[in-house]
């Protein structure tokens, strides 16, 4: 029985007013994130623990709570937008870009590409939830994916954000992000990559 099943059962049998979000039920959309006993997880893919009588469910940390388990994700997406989270192609190219599947670049990016924007990492980060000016692990992971892409022309802007007041210096090596990512991504590694990159530039 998944946590999402539990919530639906509560809604059916105990409290029709309980508020929570879900959509795909298969860990693809990133909508049903919540905290189970303090740990940020996707409700649809997390089994309810069998070894105790009570569990504690909290909404995601660091985002304004609208009702029950529903939060306003706008601040998360605002931080995401700060890193220019889309490919900006070079001007004046005449040939298509060639990136072979076994290249270093491809291997580095592939590992971090599948972010579903669930904010579990943001919620597990001891800092992102605090003063609200850390862009957060998801945004920095995204930044790395694009900075490492040889087709991209906006690396400087992204590195400026990573080097800025809300960037990599706000990361305190808690590793909450990598420990909790439901897709197995490693934002901590992305942040280390960005730290190295800014030393080189």
């Amino acid at each position: 029985m998944m946590v999402l099943d539990l919530l639906l059962a509560i809604q059916r049998e105990h409290d029709a007013c309980i508020g929570f979000r879900f959509s795909c039920r298969v860990a693809m959309c990133g909508t049903c994130t919540l905290r189970l006993d303090g740990r940020s997880v996707l409700a649809c893919q997390t089994p309810v623990p069998q070894d105790r009588d009570t569990v504690r469910l909290d909404p995601v940390a660091g985002l304004p709570v609208l009702r029950d388990l529903v939060v306003d994700t706008a601040p998360f997406w605002r931080e995401w937008a700060k890193v220019t989270p889309y490919l900006v192609p070079h001007d004046g190219l005449t040939e298509p870009a060639v990136v072979t599947p076994d290249s270093d670049e491809r291997r580095l990016i592939d590992a971090s590409l599948d972010c579903i924007g669930c904010a579990a990492c943001y919620s597990s980060c001891a800092v992102a939830a605090g003063s609200r000016d850390f862009v957060g692990p998801a945004a920095l992971n995204r930044a790395m994916v694009l900075v490492a892409d040889s087709r991209d022309a906006a690396a400087e802007q992204r590195l400026a954000v990573a080097d800025g007041a809300g960037g990599v210096d706000r990361c305190h090596y808690v590793y909450g992000c990598s420990a909790v990512c439901p897709k197995g991504l490693d934002p901590a590694a992305a942040i280390r990559y960005l730290r190295k990159s800014r030393l080189k530039s």
């Binding site: 605090g130 003063s131 000016d133």
Partner: peptide, 10 residues
């Protein structure tokens, strides 16, 4: 300084 950044609003 870093702790101030984390706990005090900008």
């Amino acid at each position: 300084w870093v702790a101030v950044d984390d706990y005090v609003d900008v």
